[in-house]
Design a protein around this nucleic acid. Structure first.
Length: 259
DNA sequence: ATGGTCGGCAACCGA
C-alpha cells in the first residue's frame, strides 16, 4: 500500500507566503499541494524555490489577482490551465495528472454580494465547472477536485449561520450548485472523517481576532470521486501555519489516501 | 479610547 497525501491552501499571495508554504512542504511532504490566489504572473512564479525543495509546479497566474498552482514531487502530465481555454479568462483553474490521478485545482470567484454581476459570474463559473466535469470525467474513476470554493455548504460550516444566511459564501443558490457536485459523484473528504461543526479553513481579516474567537468559514474543500474517496484514511485542517508571523486568511486542508 | 485587515501596487480594488 502506498500513501497519497493531497492538500489545499489559499495563499493570498504566494510570494508573501513562501516561508509558510515551504515550511509546510518540509513538514508534511505532500504528494500534491493545491494553491490559490498566487497573485503572480507566470514569469515571476517561484519555480526555483520549489525545485530546490524537490517539488515541481504547474500553474496559471495573472497580475495582482487570482492565480492557481499545483505543487507536486511527482511527474506531471496532461496539464491544462483554464476552464474556458480563452486567452483573457481569469486564472482560476489548473489540472494535471499526478501519479495517474487527475487533480483539478480551482479558485471559485468570490462573488462579492448576491444580486450583483459578480455573484452571477460566480454561479455561472461553478455551473461551467460542473459541466466540464461531466464532459471530461467519470465519477466511477479516481478524480480529485480541490481548492477554494468560496461557499460554505452547511450551517455547521460557518460561525453564525443565522446571521450569514443569504450572504455571499452562504447563499442557497451557491449551496444548490455545491449539492450538484456531490450528486454527480464528489465526496467532501473532510466531512467523511469529521461530522462536527466549527472546523474552519478561512477567517476574514476584517473581523477583529477572528481566529482567536474562531469566527470562520469552511469554504476550502478536497473533493474526490467515490473510488478515490473510499481510500481516504484521514482528513485534517492544519491551523499551525496560522501561528506564523504573516499568516494567510486561509489555512491548510489535507487528506491522506491509502492507494 | 475617537481606531479596528491584508496584498498588490501605486490609487484604490478585491477578498
Amino acid at each position: 500500500m502506498k500513501k497519497f497525501k493531497a492538500a489545499t491552501y489559499n495563499t493570498n499571495s504566494i510570494r508573501a507566503r513562501m516561508p509558510i508554504i515551504l515550511g509546510w512542504l518540509e513538514k508534511e511532504k505532500p504528494d500534491v499541494l493545491c494553491l490559490q490566489e498566487s497573485k503572480v504572473q507566470d514569469k515571476d512564479f517561484p519555480v526555483k524555490e520549489f525545485e530546490a525543495h524537490g517539488y515541481q509546479a504547474a500553474f496559471k497566474g495573472q497580475k495582482s489577482y487570482n492565480g492557481v498552482a499545483l505543487i507536486t514531487k511527482h511527474a506531471v502530465s496532461h496539464v491544462e490551465t483554464g476552464l474556458y481555454k480563452t486567452a483573457d479568462e481569469e486564472a482560476r483553474f489548473v489540472r494535471a495528472d499526478i501519479s495517474q490521478i487527475p487533480v483539478i485545482n480551482v479558485y471559485v470567484p468570490q462573488g462579492f454580494a448576491p444580486g450583483t454581476e459578480k455573484f452571477v459570474y460566480k454561479l455561472r463559473w461553478m455551473e461551467d465547472l460542473l459541466l466540464h466535469l461531466k464532459k471530461e470525467f467519470d465519477p466511477a474513476r479516481p478524480l480529485l477536485v480541490a481548492g477554494d470554493f468560496n461557499v460554505a455548504m452547511e450551517s455547521k460550516d460557518v460561525f453564525d449561520p443565522v446571521k450569514l444566511k443569504g450572504e455571499v459564501g452562504f447563499h442557497p443558490d451557491e449551496q444548490a450548485i455545491m449539492k450538484k457536485f456531490m450528486a454527480w459523484g464528489l465526496v467532501d473528504v473532510f466531512r467523511k472523517h469529521e461530522q462536527g461543526g466549527g472546523h474552519y479553513t478561512f477567517w476574514d481579516y476584517r473581523i477583529p481576532n477572528g481566529v482567536k474567537r474562531n469566527l470562520g468559514w469552511r469554504i476550502d474543500y478536497i473533493l474526490a470521486t467515490p473510488p478515490l474517496a473510499e481510500r481516504s484514511q484521514r482528513a485534517w485542517i492544519d491551523k499551525e501555519p496560522r501561528l506564523a508571523e504573516k499568516p494567510s486568511d486561509h489555512t491548510f486542508l489535507a487528506v491522506e489516501f491509502e492507494m
